[in-house]
């Protein structure tokens, strides 16, 4: 490789490393703080590793002072329920929009695209009022129902289904599969990469959601993890940042672990390597 090439390579990596450092620094600091005793957190000097390890106390408090496991379980249940129901709605909708011919299909698809443009916070108050009228405030249902129809999911799956050849569907119809069987037995297996990447988007968004649970949940036992951490800060921890950061680590860890496990599938989904006949 020529010298300018090497120089550019070094430069490129320096820029990328700097970017990565900026992204990672808060997380590193969060993890470091979760290991420190209070007097070190407020000390004048910056140190990465604690002089006196306080991890057991901090994490112990995070688990005992608030029902952290309960929050995590809530998070798992709510995100899983949301994702399962989203698939149940989005996949047949996407199939209809991609492969079935009916009057008004393009209009409906255009409206779906409009749906993508509306920020989640805009319909928050009408949704709140509706849930209140239905008597569902402060239930799991209030956390799940507003997200069951994912416009993004419909759009993503529709785009992927478009790339699946019609002949496959024709063959399935001749083989005697019903339209529902075509959706679940033919289209879904072929669209696995798209489904996985949608799953990651969905789970990340709803695991981390703070805004909506804050509106509709009052009881602590229903709180998903981010809300749980917030309770912790307000009432239990005061200025005790060690246990608070321990809580934040606990809440973030499942997503990081899940990402590392699914990394290959995730990147596959992002690049959308579809099926080639």
């Amino acid at each position: 490789m020529s010298r300018p090439g090497v120089a550019f390579g070094v430069f490129r990596h320096v820029v990328l490393l700097a970017g990565a450092a900026v992204m990672l620094a808060p997380f590193v600091w969060m993890v470091a703080t979760s290991f420190k005793p209070p007097h070190e957190i407020f000390a004048g000097e910056l140190t990465l590793l604690p002089r006196q390890w306080h991890a057991v106390e901090n994490y112990g408090q995070a688990f005992t002072k608030v029902p952290m496991l309960r929050y995590l379980a809530n998070g798992v249940f709510v995100t899983a329920a949301i994702f399962a129901l989203q698939i149940l709605v989005a996949v047949p909708c996407a199939y209809a929009l991609a492969k079935l011919e009916f009057r008004g299909r393009e209009t409906i698809f255009t409206l779906t695209l409009f749906g993508l443009l509306i920020p989640a916070h805009v319909p928050a108050i009408p949704l709140y009022v509706m849930l209140w009228k239905a008597g569902l405030l402060n239930t799991y249902a209030a956390l799940v129902i507003p997200f069951v129809i994912s416009v993004f999911g419909i759009f993503l799956m529709r785009q992927f289904f478009k790339s699946i050849p019609d002949e496959l569907i024709h063959a399935a119809r001749l083989d005697g599969l019903s339209e529902f069987a075509i959706v679940w037995r033919i289209m879904v297996p072929a669209a696995m990469p798209a489904l996985v990447s949608f799953g990651i988007f969905s789970v990340v968004a709803h695991w981390n959601d703070y805004f909506w649970p804050l509106l509709v949940i009052n009881s602590r036992e229903l709180a998903p993890p981010p809300l749980g951490v917030a309770y912790f800060r307000n009432e239990e921890a005061g200025h005790d940042f060690g246990p608070l950061m321990a809580g934040a680590v606990i809440v973030t860890a499942p997503l990081v672990v899940a990402f590392l496990l699914a990394q290959r599938r995730f990147i596959e989904g992002m690049t959308m390597t579809g099926l080639k006949s």
Binding site: P165, E167, H170, A171, A172, R173, L174, G176, I186, S277
Partner: peptide, 16 residues
């Protein structure tokens, strides 16, 4: 399904 015909396609259309 009820017409009792079978079809062979250009792209083969095998379920991948």
């Amino acid at each position: 399904k009820e017409r009792d015909v079978a079809m062979v396609f250009q792209s083969y259309a095998l379920y991948p």
